[in-house]
Design a binder for these strands. Sequence first.
DNA 1: GAGTGGTCTAGACCACGCG
DNA 2: GCGTGGTCTAGACCACTCA
Lengths: 262, 262
Amino acid sequence: MSLMPASNPLDDAAETAAAPAAPSFSPLYQQIKALILQSLEAGEWKPGEAIPSEMDLAARFRVSQGTVRKAIDELASENLLVRRQGKGTFVATHAEQHVQYRFLRLVPDAGERGSEAPADRSILECRRTRASAEVARALGLRTADPVVQVRRVLAFNGVPTILEDLWLPGVAFKGLTAEQMADYQGPTYAMFELEFGVRMVRAEERLRAVAADDTQAKLLKVAPGTPLLSVERIAFTYNDVPMELRRGLYLTGDRHYRNELS
Amino acid sequence: MSLMPASNPLDDAAETAAAPAAPSFSPLYQQIKALILQSLEAGEWKPGEAIPSEMDLAARFRVSQGTVRKAIDELASENLLVRRQGKGTFVATHAEQHVQYRFLRLVPDAGERGSEAPADRSILECRRTRASAEVARALGLRTADPVVQVRRVLAFNGVPTILEDLWLPGVAFKGLTAEQMADYQGPTYAMFELEFGVRMVRAEERLRAVAADDTQAKLLKVAPGTPLLSVERIAFTYNDVPMELRRGLYLTGDRHYRNELS
DNA sequence: GAGTGGTCTAGACCACGCG
DNA sequence: GCGTGGTCTAGACCACTCA
């Protein structure tokens, strides 16, 4: 059975750009996956909502339930969808996702409980500006394109712990204010979903150890030269489109960045 | 169909220790997965070897090929097995695995190619000693149990970049010598597989930024106080048994620790 | 061409959540 | 009790590898 011609435009999106050898074969479930992805991207189902049942989707795409299932399996393993037995399959969201702060890996050395109070955010800066060459490259923009820059400090139990700079594409985040950044309860990425329809799906981080300069030291209330964990992040929406550059400086005195390897 | 009683001893191994609520239901493919895991653990198939075909395993376990397939799917996604279409399913190994240094996330800022020359290892120390309280806890041993301690420096293109201390359970690594650590070409974990039959399957890391003390600075040929990325790793064999504690200090001047979030 | 993993189907039944 | 996801089966066919 063939839902669409062997080489269809959807295939291209799934590839890693400069692949010279054509795939020449695309399993049906991959095509279904691409179709579901399109609907997600187009906002046919909103974050937190249920998508149609496997049976419904199978009927809609004229394939068997097992094929839809395999497509959803992959989307779920990429954290784009969440399955809940007996209830349905839901569009993943940074809000209400009981693992809040999905991308924040900094945890207390002891305890590790999610019971910890959420961080206090103080927004030091939130202004429209123009992309430097470096920022432009990271965000796939051109130098001097409009961007929104945010600087903030996160404090846990009153202790300043993270100094963060964010750069966001000006077009997508038109109208972002310091108040929005400060007032929203819950993950910043949840606010981005709600207010700007931008859903971060994946991120790449580069970690380094650096010494605090005078400005950074003052903001984090530590001595200049204190070692800080520098975390540079590029966050992507669908189709690997970069939508945020973030540079965090983490104080790792009584916290650490947790990672799992396999 | 039921291959074995609903609550069998294998189930316990798969659980996260202190779970109060019994699972009360274990899918057949999970039971098959546990059986395959047992065979892997027992060394029925050696690293790099092929395991029996899906059809063979299905016959052996008296289940359908699809059920075996699902069990293997999970083991493959945990990097315990590697599937190769047309050839078979193979036991994963740290050797010959064309992504060498599977657990090392430190990459050059530019280039990033695997084309880089492998690191020179100089072994500064390799001795039998007794576990401190901290080491014992990490390795699931008792204080003063025998351990092997190794200290080494890894240099890329002649530049010392990583200072590492390793602690290994003395019983499993009886007879490990500095020569073995130095001479083996390829990943250290591959040598552990070959020489000691110990296969690292998973690891947890804790990252911090620290300042180099005098000893560390001397060994890495940098100024005291230079910020270093501290990477504490516990590596596990099958069944989440810890088999290595490692503390690395990474120089991140022109390299970074790469991580993917999703 | 034989053997392996990979895909797809159709149908049955099970576990879970909720009204 | 119904609808959802989750499991299991049996059989057909496809893509890849290697002799």
